[in-house]
Design a protein around this nucleic acid. Sequence first.
DNA 1: GCAAGAAGTGAACCACCATTCAGTCCTTGC
DNA 2: GCAAGGACTGAATGGTGGTTCACTTCTTGC
Lengths: 199, 199
Amino acid sequence: MAYRSTERVKARLSASRERIIAAALAIMAGHGYAGCSVAAVAERAGVATGSVYRHFPTKAHLFAEVFRTASQREVDAVARAAALEATAADQVSAVVETFSGRALRSPRLAYALLAEPVDPAVDAERLTFRRAYADLIAGYVAAGVASGELPPQDPELTATALVGALAEAMVGPLAAGVAGPATIPDLIRFIHRALGVSP
Amino acid sequence: MAYRSTERVKARLSASRERIIAAALAIMAGHGYAGCSVAAVAERAGVATGSVYRHFPTKAHLFAEVFRTASQREVDAVARAAALEATAADQVSAVVETFSGRALRSPRLAYALLAEPVDPAVDAERLTFRRAYADLIAGYVAAGVASGELPPQDPELTATALVGALAEAMVGPLAAGVAGPATIPDLIRFIHRALGVSP
DNA sequence: GCAAGAAGTGAACCACCATTCAGTCCTTGC
DNA sequence: GCAAGGACTGAATGGTGGTTCACTTCTTGC
């Protein structure tokens, strides 16, 4: 027994792994999933193509993790912004503003995360992304209903529908090119009506 | 000059073309886009693989047309149902019911049309599909606003958001497997609230 | 019936790209 | 310094499935 991986090596390995994920994310943000060949990711990460497979069994596994990471980051940002608000109406407003703002700031990435054609195994990860948003919103809606701020409704359904409305309102502009944030206030008004926020 | 295509031949050609499109649609309804190799489509249509390319320059062109056809059929059905109603509220209810009902009756096809990963060129066709629904709904909303039935709002945005809400509410169930139509009344309630239909 | 030319065929081709693997370089513990 | 074994490399491999094309079959007008 003359070799047993040590802390230093483990750290280097995990650094490599992170670099690969970061490279994949960077390419997605620049050229979408379509630009993400394994070779391109490896080159950007500064490793050989084959080395990618020391960390991930398949490309789909890699990108499942990439999507998970990126989605978590998005959901966290949205949750953080919403947590600063007190009423369901304001919490949901914060969700919409943060979500849209970030999407408009990184349109290529947003498009890749939301709607770009990807490997089915990666696509599955998107469902959990959307689910995470829906769960977040459902919590605010449920609290709003409980406190009487909002009329009775199924928070799950409301949340799912809101996520769809939000995504759809963004995807059009994202696919078309430049997207003006002009519609965001209108979108918030729509969503408040949908929630039953009393004016 | 000893050959000039005649009516009879033209008819046969266009019949072939239609059979190919129908075959593609049938396979989509059964096995999704994933099952639609050119060879499979050709076999089902009763022609040789190469013959497909006498009618369509690429697979993407073929499926762009398949999507266009299928989408038009869906939009027409929805429009026909909505046209029977008089108020914006009822028209939109009819849209939701017809859309959901048809989707739940052909879940595999609905999933393929709405959300299954496809070639980017085909994906582009989906935008026009959603746009068609949005335009339809926008018309009803605009009329409702004009007549005072609905509060002032941007009909385009409302319609886009509604399409998103509708699609999202269906995609979850469609991807998961069996979908109960149980949530449709709730969905209609949500949408009426979103439109500002007075109770 | 025949020549001209189009339609139809399907096996072969080929581009693409994820994945592999034999060889090389590093790290470790003694 | 050295043996053991892991990490790393990147050119070669292989599978998939869209696309082609030399050939056959059918249509047409005379």
